[in-house]
Structures are given as structure tokens and as C-alpha cells.
Simulated scan of single mutants.
Amino acid sequence: MAIQGTRTEDPGGYTFDDLAVVMGTYNEEEAIGTVLDDIETVTDGRAEVVCVDGSSDRTPEIAHDHGAIVVEQEPQGYGVAVREAVLTPDRPVVVTTDCDDTYPMERLPDFLAEINDGADVVSGDRLYYGAEQMPAMNKLGNELFALLASVLMGKRVHDTTTGMRAYRREILQKIVWTENTGLSAELLMRPLMRGYDVRERPIEYDERKGETKLDPFSGGAAIAKSIVRVALEERFR
């Protein structure tokens, strides 16, 4: 579903040479190699890959071996790592993903095409197809986060906490990002509430490799608080 707003100027013609795929990584040695292989295959090795890493396992070594730029960082939470990741590249299109092999890297061309069509942010909606591989509690929580954000913003969104999105780099640089656990929701809500062209597109979602790092209760509460805080800040900005 497209959520239309004010567009930035569309330079058009972006290719994989203009693309950076970024992620925060923390002890994902089981999956990181597969994710990086998929990115390389889909983009013919032309996309830049940035991993902001606080791992104690072989994740950074595997990322280095695959040609990724690895920014080492003490573990400080999801948002701190991803904020650093999205602000590091100088390529004009930045795609975020997780490193647990849940997101379809074969959709990178589609996301890039949406940016070339004028979108400022393209957000992957994991729930559209049912997200059968997602634990039931997580799925319910994500549906409730989307409902909460929709009510507070007065704009319908379907998946506020997806990890796969494409952004024009200029948008990432213009907005001050403040959240940690709730950064994924903030990265959708602030551009949308400021009138940028934000589009949600259905994506497939696969079973993760490795163990999740987010506690569903404390993490869920932190995300909900972030959604409320960001919505209020943007309304009274």
C-alpha cells in the first residue's frame, strides 16, 4: 500500500552501484554468511555492505571475508547499532536488513525501483502474507504496534517494526534519530509524519537462524513507548 506525501526531487536512474545494504550485527555467525551471499548474488557484488558489529563470535570475521565494511562497536542495543549503520554509507540509497536470514534479498531490485519511481522510504510489510514463520506472540505484538502507530499518527501503517526498508540517504541525514529498541518504528514514523513519500510493500518473511536477542515483554514495552514518544514529538514539532 502506498502512503503518499511530499516527494523529494527524484534524480532517477539509481543502480546497484548507488546502493548500500546495512545492518547491525550481534552474534549472528549462523546466518550472516548466507545473507551476504544473497546480497552479492542479487546485486552482482555491486552494492556496498556495512555491518555495525558488537559480536563476541565469528560474525565480524565472516563479514570481513565477504567484503563487507565492518564498524566495530560496543554492544549498546539495536538502535545504536542500526543508527550508526544507516549514517555510515555515502551512497544515495540505503537499505536496512537484519542479519538473521529472515528477509528476502531478492526484493532489493524492487525496492530500488520504487526509489527510482520517487519514493523516499520503501518499507517491507512482513505481515501482508501472514508471516507464518514469525512466533505468534511476536506477530500479535507487531500487529498491535502498527495499530497503535496508525491511531496516533492518523495514517494507516501495517508493519512499523520491519527491519527491511529502503531510504534515500538525504532523508536519513536530515532527521535526528533518537530511539534505541524502537528505532525501527521511528525510522518509518518520522518521515511519514513529515510528509515524505513513504510506501509499504508486501515482503515474504522466513524463519530466523540463531536465537533472537529481544525479550518479547521488555522489548515490546520499549517499542510501544517509543511509538507514543515519536508520535507526540512529531505532532508538536
Rank of each mutant, 00 (worst) to 15 (best):
I3D: 07
Q4P: 00
T6M: 14
R7K: 15
P11Q: 14
G13W: 07
Y14K: 13
Y14M: 15
T15D: 11
F16W: 14
D18V: 10
V21M: 12
V21R: 06
V22Q: 05
M23P: 00
G24T: 11
T25C: 09
Y26C: 06
E28Y: 11
E29Y: 00
E30P: 00
E30R: 08
G33T: 05
G33M: 07
G33K: 01
T34F: 10
D38N: 13
E40K: 15
V42S: 06
T43S: 11
T43L: 10
T43Y: 11
D44L: 10
G45C: 09
G45T: 12
G45V: 11
R46Y: 06
V50A: 07
G54Y: 03
D57K: 06
A63M: 01
A63F: 03
D65T: 03
D65I: 00
D65S: 13
H66L: 06
H66S: 07
G67Y: 11
G67V: 09
A68K: 05
I69P: 00
V71M: 04
V71R: 07
Q73P: 00
Q73K: 14
Q73D: 03
Q76Y: 01
G77E: 08
V82C: 04
R83Q: 12
D90T: 09
R91I: 07
R91A: 07
P92R: 02
V93S: 03
V94W: 10
T96Q: 05
T96A: 07
D98K: 08
D100R: 10
D101H: 12
Y103Q: 15
Y103M: 15
E106D: 14
E106V: 09
E106W: 14
P109E: 04
F111L: 15
L112H: 02
A113K: 01
E114D: 13
D117L: 02
S123R: 14
G124A: 15
D125T: 13
L127G: 07
A131F: 01
A131R: 05
E132C: 03
Q133C: 04
N138Q: 11
E143N: 02
E143V: 12
E143L: 11
L144F: 04
F145R: 05
F145I: 00
F145D: 07
A146K: 02
L147P: 00
L148Y: 01
S150R: 01
S150M: 02
V151D: 09
V151F: 02
V157Y: 01
H158W: 08
D159P: 01
D159M: 03
T160G: 00
T162G: 06
G163I: 04
Y167N: 03
R169V: 07
E170D: 14
Q173F: 00
I175E: 08
I175V: 15
V176H: 10
V176N: 06
T178G: 09
N180S: 10
N180W: 01
L183M: 12
L183D: 02
S184F: 05
A185T: 07
E186Q: 12
L187Q: 04
R190G: 01
R190W: 01
P191H: 02
M193Q: 09
M193E: 03
M193G: 00
Y196S: 08
V198W: 09
V198S: 05
R199M: 03
R201D: 14
R208L: 12
R208S: 13
R208M: 13
G210N: 04
T212S: 13
S218P: 00
S218V: 15
S218D: 14
G220D: 12
A224H: 06
I227F: 12
V228Y: 04
V228D: 06
R229V: 10
A231M: 09
A231P: 06
R237D: 06
